[in-house]
Amino acid sequence: MGVVKGFLKYAYEEKVFSTDWSKIIQRTNYKQQPKLPSSFSIDEIKSILKSIDRSNSSGKRDYAMILLAIKLGMRVSDIAGLKFEDIDWDKHILTFTQFKTKKSITLPLLPEIGNAIIDYLKYARAVSDESHCFLQQLSPYKKVTAEDVSRVARFYIHRSGISLKERKHGAHALRHSFASELLGNKTSLPVISEALGHGHTSSTMPYLRIDINQLRQCALDVSLVPSIFYQQKGGFVS
């Protein structure tokens, strides 16, 4: 329609047409939908977690980091930036300022996550004065980066042997899987937005497209067209 409108405008300016027919064509405001976010099923998530060898120091750290992405939907930048001061063991919560939005968020410190972090801190973390929770495995034991967390996630997703097909296989897919599970549990959109740390529910809307069952609940019933409609002549019933 934009091309036709432009052509008619051009034809009028070149005096091919005496009337500017481009004015009768309304402007379109089509916004391309983003691609469906990649996500994994509950069984696939279990396979990813099972692929982590928790008997060594790397596995203990990686298991805790991946749990934060799967169970809380945390971004890789926030997992890498998690500090000891962000963990309130008494209240069982995590409170931190998100790297992307610069807004504070509070998330529940689930028992499974708390136990994994403790297991890492007690038996795997290198001795260091670093205030960040997760450290790199090699000296000088600096804090992990967002790229480190992404690399770890990709490694275990591949190691799990699940079929990826055309899906993305990074840590962000684990975050999408968290949102998908919330949708499956019929969690309201504002709650999902809050859990994901989105500033507005419009940022969360694309996640609705993951769950077909949720989309079906949004669909309206279409009434059947009376048979007399097809017997019309000249645009009206004779």
Rank of each mutant, 00 (worst) to 15 (best):
I105N: 02
S177G: 03
K168P: 02
L135F: 07
L164V: 11
S150D: 13
S188L: 12
I212T: 11
S163W: 00
K103P: 00
K122G: 00
Y156L: 12
I157G: 11
K103I: 03
I192S: 11
H172Q: 05
R151M: 09
Y123F: 12
M205E: 13
N115E: 13
S180H: 08
H200I: 01
L196W: 08
R175G: 03
F155D: 12
A153P: 01
L215A: 11
E181G: 01
Q136R: 15
D148M: 06
T106W: 11
L208Y: 10
I157D: 11
K103M: 09
E166Y: 04
I118Y: 03
E130M: 12
H172E: 03
L164G: 04
S104T: 14
P108F: 02
R209N: 12
H132Y: 15
R151Y: 07
V127R: 11
F134R: 06
D148E: 04
V144C: 09
Y120I: 02
G114P: 01
V149R: 09
A195I: 03
L107S: 01
V149E: 07
V127Q: 11
G199P: 00
I192R: 10
L110C: 02
E166G: 06
L220R: 13
V191P: 07
L220C: 10
L208N: 08
Y207P: 09
V127G: 00
L220Q: 13
L107D: 01
S163A: 10
A146S: 14
G161D: 02
F155Q: 14
F134Y: 03
R167F: 02
I113T: 00
Y141H: 15
V191K: 14
